[in-house]
C-alpha cells in the first residue's frame, strides 16, 4: 500500500460557497419531441382548393360589383350589399368552424400539462375549459388557491363525473334507438346508414356536454380522437359481439331472437361509443 496516495479531501481555494452542481438533468431526460407533422398533402390540397374557390369568388364578386357600379350607382350598392351579406355569412360559418375546432385544443393543452407535470399550465388550461362549459353545468370554481392535485380531484368529482354519467345516459338513449332501428330496418345498408348518423350525433352530443360545439372540421377531428380511444374498448366489443352471436346462433335461439342479436350488438356499440367520446373530450386523463 505504501507509495499510493491515501484518501483525502482537497478544499477549493477561498471560502466562498460553491454553487450546487447542475448536471442538466431536466434536459437529458426530457421526452423526445415528436417531429412536427406539418400539413398533410390532402390538407394542403383542401386548403388550396378552399383559398382558390374563396379567393376567386371574392375577386369575381369584386369585379362584378365594380361592373355594376359602372352601370348604375344604385345597382352597384345593391350588388355590394348582397355580396357582403353572402360572404359575411360564409366567414361567420368559417369562424364558427375554426372556433369549434380550436376549442378541442384546450383538452390537448390540459393533458399535455398533466403529462409534463406543469401545474401553472394546467391551471390556465382548466380555467379556459371552465369558461367554455355550458350553462347549468356545475363548475369547480376558483382553483387558484388549492394544490393542483386537489384541484384535479375537485374537477373530476364536481364536473367530469356528472358529465360521464350524462354521457352514459345519452349512450343508453342512442342504444335504444339503434336497437329499435336495427330490429325493424328492411336492409343492412340502411342499418349502417342509421347507425353512422346516430353515432356522429351521439359524439357531438357528448362533446356538447364538455362545452365543445364542433362544426364539420371539429367533428372530423373529434371522430378521429374517439376512434383512438375506442380502440381500447374495441377488444371488449369484439368479445361481446362474438359471445352474443355464439349464444344466439343455435337454430332454436335464432327463431326466438331473430335479428334482435344484431340489434343488441349495435346497442352495445352505442354505449361504448358514448364512453369513448367522453374519454376523448375529458380535460383530464382518467
Amino acid at each position: 500500500m505504501s507509495g499510493r496516495p491515501t484518501p483525502r479531501v482537497i478544499l477549493d481555494e477561498g471560502t466562498a460557497p460553491a454553487p450546487r452542481l447542475d448536471f442538466g438533468w431536466e434536459v437529458q431526460v426530457a421526452p423526445p419531441v415528436p417531429p412536427a407533422r406539418g400539413w398533410s398533402t390532402m390538407a394542403l390540397i383542401g386548403l388550396g382548393a378552399a383559398v382558390l374557390v374563396l379567393g376567386f369568388s371574392l375577386l369575381e364578386a369584386g369585379n362584378f360589383v365594380a361592373a355594376q357600379f359602372a352601370q348604375a350607382a344604385w345597382l352597384g350598392w345593391l350588388t355590394l350589399a348582397v355580396a357582403t351579406a353572402g360572404f359575411g355569412l360564409v366567414f361567420v360559418a368559417i369562424g364558427r368552424e375554426l372556433r369549434g375546432y380550436l376549442a378541442l385544443g384546450t383538452v390537448d393543452r390540459a393533458r399535455a400539462a398533466v403529462a409534463r407535470g406543469d401545474p401553472a399550465a394546467l391551471r390556465s388550461a382548466l380555467a379556459a375549459w371552465q369558461a367554455g362549459l355550458p350553462e347549468g353545468r356545475a363548475k369547480p370554481g376558483d382553483l387558484g388557491n388549492m394544490p393542483i392535485n386537489a384541484a384535479c380531484a375537485l374537477v373530476e368529482a364536481k364536473t367530469l363525473a356528472p358529465i360521464a354519467q350524462d354521457a352514459a345516459a345519452l349512450g343508453r338513449a342512442a342504444a335504444v334507438q339503434a336497437f329499435a332501428v336495427t330490429a325493424v330496418s328492411p336492409s343492412p345498408a340502411l342499418d349502417a346508414l342509421v347507425f353512422g348518423w346516430r353515432g356522429i350525433r351521439l359524439v357531438r352530443q357528448v362533446a356538447a356536454l364538455h362545452g365543445f360545439r364542433p362544426g364539420i372540421a371539429g367533428t372530423v377531428s373529434l371522430l378521429r380522437r374517439v376512434a383512438v380511444d375506442a380502440a381500447t374498448v374495441a377488444a371488449t366489443d369484439v368479445a361481446v359481439d362474438a359471445a352474443v352471436r355464439g349464444l344466439l346462433s343455435s337454430r332454436l335461439a335464432e327463431h326466438v331472437a331473430g335479428e334482435a342479436a344484431a340489434g343488441a350488438v349495435a346497442a352495445r356499440r352505442m354505449m361504448l361509443l358514448a364512453r369513448a367520446a367522453d374519454e376523448a373530450c375529458r380535460v383530464l386523463p382518467r
Partner: peptide, 24 residues
C-alpha cells in the same frame, strides 16, 4: 504526491464549499 489520480468533485454539505475528494 506528483501523481494524477481520478477523484470526484462535489459541494460539501456543511459549509457549501467546493472540494475534490480522492476516495482512495
Amino acid at each position: 504526491e506528483g501523481q494524477a489520480v481520478a477523484a470526484v468533485r462535489g459541494v460539501l454539505l456543511q459549509d457549501g464549499r467546493g472540494a475534490t475528494i480522492y476516495p482512495g
